[in-house]
Simulated scan of single mutants.
Amino acid sequence: MLALRSAERLGRDRIAELVPVAPRTVSRILARRGAPPLSALDPMTGQLIRSSKQTATRYERERPGELVHMDVKKLGRIPDGGGWRANGRGGPGDNRDRKHGLGYDYIHAVVDDHSRLAYAEIHADEKGATAAGVLTRAADHFASHGLDRIEQVITDNAFAYRHSRAFRTAVAALGAEQLFIKPRCPWQNGKVERFNRTLATEWAYRRPFTSNADRTAALAPWLEHYNTRRTHSAHGTPPASRTQPTC
């Protein structure tokens, strides 16, 4: 168990599937040996980098599509041959000069509150028109999994969400209500914030990529795995298994 946590940076449920033992047993052993939570570890090296505030309070909407969370995560683009994660600090690709860097990819993500079914696309910007297109295609993706209606869409207060006519139109076209988190309260958009962290750990920084195209190509297979095969710690099943209406 300790070797899997150290080498693969797996959570208790994934470790329990591989050993196999009960997840609670894994938790007790990891805690007894002083293993820090995954959120406190560097996803590439496994080294302790920070401590995190935790809460036992959780909430979940009662049915799929009642509420979806949307957000954007920014990632630096990877030069051909790999960046510093592949070649080390000071090596080829270690271009930390923001003025002459390669710029950023913007990962637009949409997550269903009840099932945790997720959809994500990579774009060159975080504009309202781009976000509107992502939301529309996310709704189509959710419908293909049996989630045929989105009732509410919650986002932070970014300009693209609050002031973009294109985004407001996309929400209205779905027949949904647009909601915003309170300023400086990111936990109100916590489902997609947590998904972004998982996405970074298990996709973006899981291994050193040798090009930006290489990392981009790895997103769709990872999303398929996340939605259909990966056990979600919040409810113990893959998200796609919870998309049918419950009432």
Rank of each mutant, 00 (worst) to 15 (best):
Arg24Tyr: 01
Arg24Met: 07
Thr25Tyr: 01
Ser27Trp: 01
Ser27Thr: 13
Arg28Tyr: 02
Arg28Glu: 03
Ile29Asn: 02
Ile29Ser: 03
Ile29Gln: 03
Leu30Phe: 04
Leu30Arg: 13
Leu30Thr: 13
Ala31Val: 07
Arg32Tyr: 00
Arg32His: 11
Arg32Gly: 14
Arg33Asp: 12
Arg33Gln: 08
Arg33Pro: 00
Arg33His: 12
Gly34Pro: 11
Gly34Gln: 11
Gly34Val: 03
Ala35Asn: 11
Ala35Val: 15
Ala35Gly: 13
Pro36Leu: 01
Pro36Lys: 05
Pro36Val: 11
Pro37Phe: 02
Pro37Lys: 02
Pro37Asp: 08
Pro37Trp: 04
Pro37Ser: 07
Pro37Thr: 14
Pro37Gln: 06
Leu38Asp: 14
Ser39Leu: 05
Ala40Asp: 15
Ala40Gly: 12
Ala40Trp: 01
Ala40Gln: 09
Ala40Asn: 05
Leu41Gln: 11
Leu41Val: 05
Asp42Cys: 15
Asp42Lys: 07
Asp42Leu: 06
Asp42Pro: 10
Pro43Glu: 14
Pro43Thr: 05
Pro43Cys: 12
Met44Asp: 13
Thr45Cys: 11
Thr45Ile: 07
Thr45Gly: 14
Gly46Asp: 12
Gln47Asn: 09
Leu48Arg: 12
Leu48Gln: 13
Ile49Thr: 13
Ile49Lys: 09
Ile49Cys: 06
Arg50His: 02
Arg50Cys: 08
Ser51Arg: 08
Ser51Cys: 04
Ser51Tyr: 04
Ser52Lys: 14
Ser52Phe: 03
Lys53Glu: 10
Lys53Gln: 12
Lys53Leu: 09
Lys53Met: 08
Gln54Leu: 10
Thr55Asn: 14
Thr55Gln: 13
Thr55Met: 06
Ala56Tyr: 05
Ala56Gly: 14
Thr57Met: 06
Thr57Lys: 08
Thr57Arg: 12
Arg58Pro: 07
Arg58Tyr: 06
Tyr59Gly: 15
Glu60Thr: 10
Glu60Leu: 03
Glu60Arg: 14
Glu60Tyr: 00
Glu60Trp: 02
Arg61Gly: 01
Arg61Phe: 02
Arg61Ser: 08
Glu62Trp: 00
Arg63Lys: 10
Arg63Gly: 12
Arg63Trp: 04
Arg63Val: 07
Pro64Lys: 02
Pro64Glu: 05
Pro64Phe: 00
Gly65Pro: 00
Gly65Trp: 01
Glu66Val: 01
